[in-house]
């Protein structure tokens, strides 16, 4: 089957069930494209995600990079388009008819009900990212980062710099 078709069809489906943002659907993207279609190996997949954290802008650009790696410019355009457009249409429809949905109570019930899924998926993403390089030094380093973030409100780009330096020095091998 044609790569462009595989990308557009699957990202379209994922876009409709993408609860909790792009970071939360990383396991699903991995399941479909790495485990099912074998479009790339696991290490490259997680590395693309890590690299996309180093760029500014919304996390969704990771999907563009993924498409780029698989099928070049067209892959990037089609992947981003398929992941964004269906929910954008929903968003605009919501905006058009928004006045009917003013009941704050239902917003909150739905939002709270989606939370366990988002939380579970995020945990899944977090473990998926380090599965290949799993060792005790990684655990210690991650714990330190989590500790820092719980104490101080720090922009993640500084933490990524720390990560790059610590990793480049070979302290995590």
């Amino acid at each position: 089957m044609n790569l462009i078709w595989i990308l557009s069809y699957n990202f379209f489906i994922i876009s409709l069930i993408a609860i909790g943002g792009v970071s939360a659907v990383v396991p699903e993207i991995h399941r479909v494209f790495v485990e099912h279609y074998h479009l790339m190996d696991e290490q490259l997949f997680t590395q693309l995600f890590a690299i996309s954290q180093a760029a500014p802008g919304p996390n969704v650009i990771f999907v563009g990079l993924f498409g780029w790696q698989v099928a070049g410019v067209m892959g990037a355009v089609v992947s981003l388009f398929s992941l964004c457009v269906p929910t954008l249409l929903l968003a605009v429809m919501f905006e058009k008819t928004g006045s009917q949905y003013q009941s704050k109570k239902w917003y909150n019930v739905i939002k709270l009900s989606l939370s366990p899924i988002a939380i579970g998926l995020l945990l899944s993403t977090s473990t998926l990212l380090i599965k290949k390089d799993f060792n005790w030094k990684m655990i210690v380093f991650i714990s330190v980062i989590v500790f820092i973030l719980s104490k101080w409100k720090l922009n993640s780009i500084y933490l990524l710099f720390i990560g790059i330096i610590v990793g480049a020095l070979g302290l995590l091998n």
Partner: peptide, 25 residues
Amino acid sequence: GALKGMLAVASALVLVTAAKLVLAQ
């Protein structure tokens, strides 16, 4: 090595996002 470090930080960031969601409940 640098990529490994970035992966660790990315993993920690996602973990913290999840923790924030739990605390908001």
